[in-house]
Design a protein around this nucleic acid. Structure first.
Lengths: 336, 336
DNA sequence: TGCACAATGTAAATCGTTTACATTTGTGCA
DNA sequence: TGCACAAATGTAAACGATTTACATTGTGCA
């Protein structure tokens, strides 16, 4: 538990630092006898290599930064778990940083990429424009996950949000619902606006009318779900089902319904998106469109590390679509 | 957005590297005119100092590592938010890493401290023994938060768990409950065992009998809450209230009660600990003992940074107690 | 003019590691 | 035995910044 250097190890075992370094990096051309001596010295001194020195020389850090708008959504942490798992097996470390929805803080954090504190960044949502992202991707290794940016030719891993929205609404229709509301963020969010497009396409496919009163666009904040729900259920002809673009909004809607004396899963069907852990814990449990968080995290970091390893070569800037899945629980029900 | 070096900056503004460095480090004896020129050059080149080079020389990294048993509990992320906020204002960065309840991974992560990749570590729960922690604290800067370790003379920030348990149970007693159960982890967890001690003291103070059938020790896992609840409510004489050592366990208990046809807040009172965001979102909302997460995070990192700054001096290894607060919501009720 | 002092430059050392290149050692074969 | 060649090891520069001793220049004031 000390701070021995490679020099100390070299002295201890009577070899040069170069040889010690070679042993450390499993390079060829080291005799077994020397390797053994080095390992003994390392053991004895409790030596572990200093990352700063190593990385300064190697011009890489083996650290991946994950940035997110807020760290308090368990959805993000699920993705981080997937990223971490894959990184662990590849000798990379993961830094998480949330920029609290402040683009100023986000810029500050991205400096870690520019000054080579980290080898790559995965953005779980961003305030950067497609243009800026494209420029960054030229020089540095970045990737988007969960939340794509229209027009950004950057490595991206997302579910098919439009299809997810479509499938969610279709499943409500299959349950007999005809008057289905939408609660989402505004169209600045790519994911929200695509899920809305899916909602509209499903209505169209099943010859259901689009009623603007049933479409509530606002933010991803918890409060918006309840406010929208209150408005919806006070309509002369309220919906029998609500599709929300996030589980948090759905839970807020369930909550507000309860306050209004309505029971989700009986008086009103509520469907979310993401499948955060809370969905199962809620009473009633919340139906949703599952995003395979862990798999998304693993995939995005796998591709990102491949880009980092591809020194001179062409980088992968494709958009990967991972499969979503409808999960019906107690907050939705069949209309008789 | 390039990777200019301090040399490039020096060339750009026609000054020497030394002067640029002096400006960067706010050292005295630099004319305003030069400082201005340097800043302009920095601006123009988009320069930011290479973290590795700087910190290798300065023997510090300005990074704090926060380790936790799992990243998927929002409770931890609330504390991290507090830590981050304070660090941001002090020019420190925060790394989060969860060791997934594996002491092997935890050891691996702590290497970041030993090889000087980070300046200090805050442990939100640990598998290290008091002995090992004490040894570490001799050479390195570490702190415990939320979960203390008995016998560890290490900087610590916690609530008074015993008193928290006491107050929770006392508040249930004040609501008229006489038969109160306990759901907790086993006594390896300092926090759980202290909260249990508080539970027992409260029963004693109010002359209520201790019934071993009402004491369910297991783990912090979600499942344990439900299992314990099932056992409790199947007793010949079931409790009218349950105190759980975490909100997650409480929510699990509420859930199981529901499955058994019992309504928390009406048929059985349930009280948790922590005040995670989910408490307010649940139906019924969950009564709890609040831990001031953000304040705890700020306090622990403030003290840790002070220790880091105190180069030669004596380190602060005190245990700071922050105030908890009882919050009564819908999952508890007055017995008539 | 000359002295003191502030501002700046020069250049080397340093942090811990990796690595290109140089050197030594060892082995097999003629 | 001696030579060639490979294997093993050593040497020293490099990575990018900071720090420092020392040298130089410029400025104001007595």
């Amino acid at each position: 538990m000390s701070s021995a250097t490679i020099k100390d190890v070299a002295n201890e075992c009577g070899l040069s630092v170069a040889t010690v370094s070679r042993v450390l990096n499993n390079s060829a051309n080291v005799s077994e006898r020397s390797a053994k001596k080095v390992h003994e010295a390392i053991e004895k001194l409790g030596y572990s290599p200093n990352f700063l020195g190593r990385n300064l020389r190697k011009r890489e850090t083996n650290v991946i930064l994950v940035t997110m708008p807020t760290s308090e959504h368990s959805f993000y942490m699920k993705i981080v778990a997937g990223i971490q798992q894959y990184c662990q097996s590849r000798g990379y470390d993961v830094i998480c940083a949330s920029f609290n929805n402040s683009s100023e803080v986000e810029v500050r954090q991205m400096n870690m990429l520019f000054n080579r504190t980290v080898d790559g960044v995965i953005l779980l949502g961003t305030s950067y424009s497609a243009d800026t992202l494209n420029k960054m991707a030229n020089t540095y290794n970045i990737a988007l996950c969960c939340e794509g940016v229209e027009g950004a030719d950057v490595l991206t891993v997302v579910v098919d949000d439009e299809q997810g929205g479509y499938d969610a609404v279709k499943s409500l229709i299959k349950l007999g619902h005809r008057r289905i509301a939408f609660i989402g963020a505004n169209d600045n969010s790519a994911s929200s606006s695509k899920r809305k497009a899916g909602y509209l396409r499903a209505l169209g496919d099943f010859q259901l009318p689009v009623d603007d009163d049933l479409i509530c666009c606002g933010t991803f904040e918890y409060e918006h779900g309840g406010e929208a729900m209150e408005k919806l259920m006070s309509l002369p002809e309220p919906p029998t089902a609500v599709f929300c673009v996030s589980d948090l909004l759905a839970i807020s809607a369930v909550h507000k319904a309860h306050e209004m004396g309505l029971e989700a899963g009986k008086d009103i069907a509520v469907m979310g998106f993401d499948n955060i852990t809370m969905c199962e814990m809620m009473l009633p449990s919340v139906s949703t469109v599952e995003q395979p968080c862990k798999e998304m995290g693993e995939l995005v970091v796998k591709k990102l590390l491949a880009n980092i390893a591809a020194v001179g070569g062409e980088k992968d800037n494709k958009c990967y679509i991972v499969p979503h899945r409808i999960i019906l629980r107690d907050s939705t029900f069949q209309i008789k």
